[in-house]
């Protein structure tokens, strides 16, 4: 395992009841890089990203075998704390889902849950998180207004700020731009480029151009298998597997 590897999966299998959704997936995810997961609907990419912070624990009849190691420790081991894992490995979803609260409270919510109550400290966290999510300038005069009044793109960046507020190391993004217009998408993509300086970002996307634009590594999945995983430039210039080639050139999927 190289120094910059932060997450690895080893022979990861996942079943929803009798359906096998992941088939022996083994990858290494690099810290401070963007990794994109692509593949047709139902290929297991969202399932895989949800394994990284144990979101699948909430799904009935979901079974996992193999391991996911975060800093070398299996997050599915007995005694691993899912709450702590979800703090360190945050998640942003497809549809912006701010709480029906003020902009400020959305960001302060996580730190409060984790026990921070000092107002000054919270103010600092909120400002820093909003700045890092490239949203501060747009909302600094309306922190007490409802988050529901923000535009879709702003709401999504607010969700990113909310994730950053609890100081994670890894940010999982499950199709973060699919509900956004091209301008808002472009802002999120620029933000991802900034975030990778300090965080590991894993993004699931249906948009292959987006994967090629934002990521350093790309994994192509099909029917629950990781068909090919490598540097993004190589995958999009000269993939090793014919299946990858056929998918990214639009011959199926």
């Amino acid at each position: 395992m190289s120094e910059s590897t932060i997450l690895t999966t080893e022979n990861l299998d996942l079943w929803y009841g009798d359906t096998r959704a992941l088939r022996s997936v083994s990858i290494e995810v690099k810290d401070r890089h963007v990794t994109a997961l692509i593949g047709p609907s139902g290929c297991g990419k969202s399932t895989l990203i949800r394994c990284f912070n144990r979101m699948n624990d909430l799904v009935d009849h979901c079974r996992i075998s193999g391991s996911i190691n975060y800093h070398g420790k299996n997050i599915y081991a007995n005694g691993a704390d899912p709450v702590e894992i979800r703090r360190a490995i945050g998640m942003v979803f497809q549809k912006p889902n701010p709480f029906p609260k003020s902009v400020y409270e959305n960001v302060a919510y996580g730190p409060r849950v984790h026990g921070i109550s000092d107002r000054k400290q919270l103010d600092a966290i909120v400002e820093k998180s909003l700045r890092n999510a490239a949203l501060w300038e747009e909302v600094k005069d309306r922190l007490s207004e409802s988050a529901m009044g923000l535009s879709g793109g702003q709401q999504q960046r607010l969700c990113i700020a909310r994730t950053l507020a609890v100081e994670p190391e890894v940010i999982l993004m499950d199709e973060p731009c699919s509900a956004l217009d091209p301008i808002a998408t472009s802002k999120i993509e620029s933000l991802i480029d900034e975030l990778k300086k300090n965080y590991c970002v894993i993004i699931v996307t249906h948009n292959m151009q987006q994967a090629s634009r934002v990521s350093d590594y790309t994994g192509f999945m099909y029917l629950g298998e990781m068909i090919e995983y490598g540097e993004t430039a190589q995958i999009f210039e000269n993939p090793n597997k014919e299946l990858t080639e056929n998918y990214i050139t639009g011959r199926f999927g």
Partner: peptide, 9 residues
């Protein structure tokens, strides 16, 4: 179309 892979080549 922003072609990739063999299409790009």
């Amino acid at each position: 179309y922003q072609p990739v892979a063999r299409d790009m080549r």
